[in-house]
Nucleic acid binder design. Sequence first.
DNA 1: CTAGGCTTCCTATGCTCTTTAGGCAAATGC
DNA 2: GCATTTGCCTAAAGAGCATAGGAAGCCTAG
Lengths: 192, 192
Amino acid sequence: MPRAGLTTDRVVRAAADLADAEGFDAVTTSAVARLFDVKAASLYSHVTGTDDLRTRVALLALEELADLAAAAVAGRADADALVAFANVYRDYARSHPGRYDATRLRLDARTAAASAGGRHAALTRAILRGYGLAGDHETHAVRLIGSVLHGYTSLELAGGFDHSDPPGDQTWPWILDGLDRMLRVWSDTGAS
Amino acid sequence: MPRAGLTTDRVVRAAADLADAEGFDAVTTSAVARLFDVKAASLYSHVTGTDDLRTRVALLALEELADLAAAAVAGRADADALVAFANVYRDYARSHPGRYDATRLRLDARTAAASAGGRHAALTRAILRGYGLAGDHETHAVRLIGSVLHGYTSLELAGGFDHSDPPGDQTWPWILDGLDRMLRVWSDTGAS
DNA sequence: CTAGGCTTCCTATGCTCTTTAGGCAAATGC
DNA sequence: GCATTTGCCTAAAGAGCATAGGAAGCCTAG
């Protein structure tokens, strides 16, 4: 009886692919075990359970997304950087819907602190530096950007724009343009 | 053996309360049956299964939210209406997290068409009327508002702003103000 | 090159949840 | 008061999650 050659890494990667293909909810020990033609119990040496498996997929996705975002933002500034950053999120959500869903998994404080979540916030702040927002305003803006990107991609992913005109592709640049203008207005007006 | 007095309506209402208390994922036939001190199989006369149960909770939540939003918007215009509308969403999400989660359930086309989803879009358009956006721009703006409201509330609900300063309460008005300015800018510039 | 030990995967088991089928008893209507 | 309808039941099958303990592949030391 040859071995399947399971490792935590391979299991998590397979789980992530499964999430993209079948949805994040489909990520279960049994489903992943089927992929490897192995009994579900065999996974428990590599992963402590279904929760752990899902958490690891989420961490993987956060890393991947942060890597892509960092690469996209490098060497750009202002609206250019904002658009590149935003497109990474939207493209990632469209090409890896299961992984993207995973990034919304609620992590406990310890896990969250050890995740790539901090890199996302840092990247957003780096983009905002060009807009020259002061103090709390920068934090508000980080949250605004997060809200818009997450809100739009998740509504689009859920098919919210499928059955109405114009297609989502046209709304997206419109929204990014608006975001950029909004941030510029705030950097001008300055105070709160 | 006295009867529990189940009806579809009471079952769905109990399921919605359960969702708020334990999370939307906790809405299962067994869990709801326990609430009524009844065997799980007994629910199948009132609901066709777990999917049906969850769908009904989603429809209930969409109705409730549309009712609240309609009441809040009545008699207000422009930024006033926008803020009132937005606050309904955020407050609903905070006081009824499970129901709010349910509204994000992906409905099939037929069910979605029969849901209160259309009222939400109509209300948003009603608010936008005051901003005088033309054609496609109004659709873009409907989507922008949906994205920001959903994005912000869902990030806040997920605890995204819990462990950083300033608290989310301060960011919220800032974002609404920005949204209002953004819409006004577009109504001025007019074209795309 | 072989003996022990470690790792990997297995079988077996128990619990929970979902759903279907069929039965008895409580409520309802004549 | 009796028959019908309805409401909730028991029973059972199928699937997922998880734990315990066993056996066979693989590695290293002598």
